[in-house]
Design a protein around this nucleic acid. Structure first.
Length: 218
DNA sequence: GGCCAGGACACCA
DNA sequence: TGGTGTCATGGC
């Protein structure tokens, strides 16, 4: 608990509040979560801008848009055929089950909601937790490649743990507060975009106090 | 020109 | 259950 809270505070002091997720509506947020799978965020922004310019940033529009048109609009985000299918499946699911209204879906309790999201093809644990946390305000900790990389290097994770184990590591040591989970994940991403390259060089890390955790725990 | 990016899934042993 | 290949664009 103490170590995680200290790291969180150091990140917050260094980078400040991140005000995530960068989206105007919960639906746009969910679309962004799918589009950002294994992709740079600037590429996702291009795809979302294309959808907005085409007046296609709604579940109805995406569900009924011809597939080739949808692929063309989201092409900058990469994996555009896969992601077009995933966006269409998600949007049509909302249309069929929730009158196209994501907020209606998000009113459910988080645990059955998470299970429901995971039944949808193209929504895995990270995407589901991102939607739960950032669109729904539910306290579900989001684990991504940066989380694994940073905390393995800090010596708090062994490396190689699965998603569920890493998520449990955080959720068992932190109070279940959506705002804390929101800010923590955003700070991890902001830090790692600059300092968690695949080739680790702790000496490049500006957070010397954080790097010291690794020495203390190893 | 190669590396990397805010994953998920199908397939195989 | 875990490991591997596949999907693809764009910035540096």
């Amino acid at each position: 608990m103490t170590q995680l809270r200290s790291i969180y505070q150091l990140l917050l002091d260094r980078y400040g509040p991140q005000h995530w997720w960068p989206a105007e509506t919960p639906f746009e947020m969910a679309i962004g979560a799918i589009l950002t799978q294994n992709t740079n965020w600037p590429n996702v922004e291009k795809a979302i801008a294309n959808l907005r310019d085409a007046a296609a940033l709604s579940s109805e529009a995406i569900c009924f848009l011809p597939r080739l048109d949808l692929e063309s609009l989201i092409r900058p985000s990469g994996f555009f055929r896969q992601k077009a299918e995933r966006l269409a499946l998600f949007s049509c699911y909302l249309h069929d089950h929730y009158q196209g209204n994501l907020e209606l879906m998000l009113q459910q309790p988080p645990e059955p909601l998470r299970r429901e999201l995971l039944t949808l093809k193209g929504i895995g644990p990270e995407t589901a937790d991102s939607i739960l946390l950032y669109a729904g305000g539910h306290p579900s900790f989001v684990v991504d490649a940066y989380t694994d990389r940073l905390f393995s290097r800090l010596g708090l994770l062994a490396g190689g743990e699965n998603y569920q184990d890493i998520q449990a590591f955080f959720m068992q040591r932190l109070p279940r507060e959506a705002q804390l989970f929101n800010e923590f994940h955003a700070l991890i991403v902001s830090h790692c975009k600059q300092h968690c390259r695949k080739q680790p060089r702790c000496s490049d890390c500006p957070l010397e106090k954080i790097c010291r955790f690794r020495q203390l725990s190893s």
